[in-house]
């Protein structure tokens, strides 16, 4: 017989509220059901309300680990990317969201964790260990991360330079980064609005990039960020043209 290989949940020993804010969180049966229901509803909403068009869906790897990196100009972005994933992918998909917006209070962190399966990224005091935890989770749990490397929403719709945190997740690994260009989300829900407008949204998915030979240091991280940024810029342009 093989040695015993089942391990306790990585979040064992955390109180419920600590667990929702932890990147070690692992979903159970009910939570998985909640994510699936939530993203199925979102998918219908985007199909009807925004006529979401996805170009290049066949370029998504069949299974995790991989990282979806996109431009960020609206709260709709993560939801649109999540809705674009297949039900099989959603099980392991984690939108990486700003801790100070989505995990500040008990209510928002419970909602973000249970409904969206989001993981917090604390922007002000995010040490290297937080990214190291995410890097480990990505590989060990064959996870799918939805991340926005600009580090925040663009306030005017134009793309900002990518931060090198993305590089810290994937440099020196075979984990593919799938660049995505989103258009229409800014017009649908700009920062000053609370209710989205029914604007057409287009998502263009590019060929996955891998960085096994890029050094896992500051120069390497910047290289990763720069190369993904230029691809995302192209794809966003293609989306706009489409």
């Amino acid at each position: 017989m093989e040695p015993w290989d089942l391990q306790p949940a990585h979040d064992t020993g955390l109180t419920p509220s600590e667990r929702f804010r932890s990147v070690r969180r692992e979903s159970g049966l009910l939570e998985s059901l909640a994510h699936q229901v939530c993203f199925s509803l979102l998918r219908s909403y985007f199909a009807i309300g925004h006529r979401l068009t996805i170009v290049g869906r066949e370029k998504l790897p069949t299974h995790g680990p991989f990282v979806l990196a996109a431009n960020h100009c609206s709260h709709l972005d993560a939801l649109a990317l999540g809705a674009a994933l297949t039900p099989r992918h959603r099980e392991r998909a984690f939108p990486v969201a700003a801790g100070d917006v989505f995990f500040q209070t008990r209510v928002t962190s419970t909602f973000s964790a249970i409904m969206l399966n989001a993981l917090p990224m604390w922007r002000k005091n995010c040490g290297p260990h937080a990214l190291a935890d995410l890097r480990r989770k990505l590989q060990e749990e064959r996870a799918i991360f939805i991340i926005f490397p600009e580090g925040g929403r663009s306030r005017n719709g134009s793309m900002m330079p990518f931060k090198h945190g993305l590089g810290m997740l994937v440099a020196e690994t075979n984990v593919p980064v799938v660049p995505c260009g989103l258009t229409g989300t800014f017009e649908a829900l700009p920062p000053e609005r609370n209710i989205p407008r029914p604007v057409v949204i287009t998502l263009t998915i590019g060929d996955p990039l891998q960085f096994p030979l890029t050094a896992n240091d500051r120069t390497g991280w910047s290289e990763v960020a720069a190369s993904v940024e230029s691809r995302v810029r192209d794809l966003a342009g293609q989306s706009r043209a489409a």
Partner: peptide, 17 residues
């Protein structure tokens, strides 16, 4: 739920269901 989480059985979705 607690038993499945501490033993790791919760990752076996079919059996848990």
């Amino acid at each position: 739920r607690e038993y499945a989480r501490i033993t790791g059985l919760f990752r076996e979705r079919t059996i848990s269901l």
